[in-house]
Amino acid sequence: MFFLLAFLTGVVINIQLICNSTLAKKIGLINATFINFFLAFIFLFIYKAIKFEPFNFSNISHVPFVFFSGGLLVIIITLLANFLIPKLPLIYSTIFTFLGQIIASLILDSIYGFQFPLGKLVGISFIFTGILYLIAYDYMEKRFSKKKIII
Rank of each mutant, 00 (worst) to 15 (best):
T78C: 06
H62I: 11
I75M: 02
L108K: 00
P89S: 14
L106I: 15
L39M: 12
Y112V: 13
I150D: 13
F37T: 07
F7V: 14
P86Y: 03
A24H: 01
V12P: 11
Y139C: 03
L132R: 03
L84W: 06
V66H: 06
A104E: 04
G119L: 11
P54R: 15
T94F: 09
L23Y: 00
Y47C: 14
F2T: 15
Q101K: 01
A6H: 08
G28A: 03
I35F: 07
A81R: 11
F43T: 09
S105E: 02
I151A: 10
I151H: 13
I95T: 14
A136I: 11
L108S: 08
F55Y: 14
L134Y: 10
G123A: 02
K120C: 01
Y137N: 07
F126K: 00
I35E: 03
I95E: 06
I35T: 11
A81P: 03
G123V: 00
T97Y: 02
Y137A: 03
N36W: 11
L90H: 09
E141S: 11
L84H: 05
G71H: 01
Q115R: 10
S125W: 04
V11M: 09
L73V: 02
I149E: 11
S145L: 00
A40V: 14
S61N: 10
S93Q: 09
V11F: 14
S58G: 06
I151N: 13
I75L: 05
A49E: 15
K147W: 07
F144T: 05
L121V: 14
G100T: 09
S105I: 08
K142H: 05
T94H: 10
T97E: 05
F43R: 00
G113E: 01
G10Q: 10
M1H: 15
T97S: 08
T22G: 09
I77A: 12
G130R: 02
F43Y: 08
K51Y: 13
L121R: 05
I13H: 06
N20Y: 03
F38A: 07
K146F: 12
I76S: 05
K142F: 03
K51H: 14
A32N: 01
I85R: 09
F34T: 08
V63Y: 14
I149H: 05
F7P: 10
K146V: 04
K48V: 10
A104T: 13
F43S: 09
V12M: 15
A24F: 00
K120S: 07
H62T: 14
Y133G: 06
V122Q: 05
F114K: 07
F55R: 00
P117T: 07
G71N: 03
I75G: 00
A81T: 12
I15S: 06
I13N: 11
K25P: 04
S125L: 14
F65S: 08
